[in-house]
């Protein structure tokens, strides 16, 4: 009898542990100060990037970055500024992918986080934006 009760307790403990595990799998932690700060910085920069996506000057790359795709539409005088925007955006994106992996206790997930974002950025790009796929650049 005592054995049965103890065994039952063991199974309850295991079930609880497994359900906690399943719950942890359901969501990734993205509510950290570092992630929020990056998100905000990228959101503010997006006001400057959006017209450049729309004109085709910038495109979303297959590796989760943005890239200068066609500089011809950018006046010479603004090219330095556009390059700086691209560099800043890519630095924020790299930090974002790294921080998400780290916030979830798995720094080694960084590349997979980046791949996931790369797919989502491309799939959710607005009509007229350029995106990079396996076969090169295409317009959405």
């Amino acid at each position: 009898m005592k054995l049965m009760i103890m065994l039952r307790q063991v199974f309850v403990m295991v079930a609880l542990a497994l359900s906690a595990f399943a719950f942890a799998q359901g969501n990734l932690e993205i509510n950290t100060p570092a992630i929020s700060a990056l998100q905000k910085s990228m959101q503010q920069r997006h006001a400057q990037l959006a017209p450049l996506y729309a004109s085709g000057a910038l495109g979303l790359t297959a590796d989760g970055n943005v890239a200068l795709r066609d500089a011809s539409g950018v006046p010479m005088a603004q090219r330095g500024q556009v390059n700086a925007l691209v560099a800043a955006e890519n630095a924020d994106r790299a930090a974002l992918y790294r921080e998400i992996a780290r916030a979830n206790g798995h720094p080694e997930w960084e590349a997979e986080v980046r791949n996931t974002f790369a797919q989502r950025w491309v799939e959710r790009a607005q009509p007229g934006w350029w995106v990079q796929g396996a076969g090169g650049w295409t317009v959405r």
């Binding site: 799998q25 359901g26 969501n27 990734l28 993205i30 992630i35 998100q39 990228m42 959101q43 997006h46 974002l96 998400i100 798995h106 997930w109 997979e112 986080v113 996931t116 974002f117 797919q119 989502r120 950025w121 959710r124």
Partner: peptide
């Protein structure tokens, strides 16, 4: 790697960044 959870997280962040 929790791929589905990562996709959800990516979408939430993209919503914010692109103001969708």
């Amino acid at each position: 790697f929790p791929a589905a959870a990562a996709e959800k997280a990516a979408d939430r962040i993209i919503d914010e960044v692109w103001q969708l």
